[in-house]
Write a protein that binds this DNA or RNA. Structure first.
Lengths: 193, 193
DNA sequence: GTTTTTTGCCAACGCGTGTTGACAAAATCA
DNA sequence: TGATTTTGTCAACACGCGTTGGCAAAAAAC
């Protein structure tokens, strides 16, 4: 009675079920508050399978929560609109179905999981900083990138983790315009050094 | 041989030792990763005392991590400089010895402890929002306050939780100037709606 | 049709957790 | 001094956690 789908052996389907359940729960509750038993229950399989398939809880987390939040092509963005471009790309990345909410996972876990925190730092170091460095004096690049990071980070915290009502309700367009303007000022050093 | 300090019975001194140790550990590791055994060890007493004195781990957390992060007098701040004033007050509050780092505690725990998250929301609702509402049109007050909150929140996350190097190294003065300018623009609605 | 491999469940382990109650030492009171 | 309350320790509990090994059923291979 098992409807055998060709080219999808049972194993990969349960692998995917585990990955999906893990992503949902990690992003909802963070690393600590998510148990292997919860993931197994949601995926409809025994918790022991998780260890067999992924090696352990930490390994599963590293596998589902740390895919690259890749900003597309910031290295070629127009310096005059890099603020809005950056914010738009982040929002699309965070709220697109593809990523499955990888950012809330990281944010929720960064407080208790050093690997998540390091991944966040790396994200800004490898993606935000280079883009910022291109559009202003190199002496202040680190500071400008830090300011940009603080604003982007705060936007994500307010909108996805803390769920501050006004920030949750703002449309993507409005956010791109308002926060983008701030990022633009930070990026170009338009603010007082 | 016990040097009996008048007017400080032994009980209040160990109460304070527990509170101090709890604040330090909660702010360092967040709620989940901090155990009552750790707190007891650092305070130099048996973990069971913590339950006896405070009722339990949750109650102790509520007692040490939720004192009001009170902004002094924002209701009478000069609208022309409310941005810098606000950022300066937050920084002083967060980094002053008095508060003992109450903000990192909240931030680290907000991801896993709903009470901490609610306390953060209340903080912005009761302190930031009213101050923002006074310096601009009431129709956009919620949105402006939300934007201010996102920037303030991100600053705290970057500086205290994620420890992003450039943000950690910035002096209070520079932060007050740069971030203050952003908050000023958000607060007064100088940005595009 | 028989063997072998895959896929899964079950029971249990070792450990760390918050919490409790019984009891000893110290301080306080009479 | 003797009685009583305070302050603290100790051992143990019940529970939930990640993880393990053994075994049944299904699938695949021969």
């Amino acid at each position: 009675m098992t409807i055998a789908r060709r080219s999808t052996p049972k194993s990969v389907r349960t692998r995917e079920a585990i990955e999906t359940a893990a992503k949902e729960l990690f992003s909802l509750n963070g690393f600590d508050r998510t148990t292997v038993r919860d993931i197994g229950a949601r995926a409809g399989i025994d918790p022991s399978m998780i260890i067999r398939y992924f090696g352990g809880k930490e390994a599963l987390f590293a596998h589902v929560a740390l895919p690259d939040l890749q900003l597309p092509d910031l290295s070629q963005a127009d310096p005059a609109t890099i603020g809005e471009t950056m914010v738009r790309h982040f929002l699309e990345q965070w709220e697109g179905e593809q990523a499955g909410g990888g950012m809330p996972v990281l944010l929720r876990s960064a407080a208790s999981n050093e690997e998540a925190a390091e991944r966040l730092r790396a994200m800004f170091r490898d993606q935000v900083f280079p883009a910022i460095a291109r559009v202003g004096p190199s002496e202040t690049a680190a500071m400008r990138a830090g300011l940009v990071a603080s604003q982007i980070l705060g936007l994500a915290m307010a909108r996805y983790v803390l769920l501050l009502p006004p920030v949750v309700m703002m449309s993507q367009d409005v956010i791109v315009r308002t926060v983008g303007e701030t990022v633009q000022r930070y990026a170009t050093g338009a603010t007082g050094l």
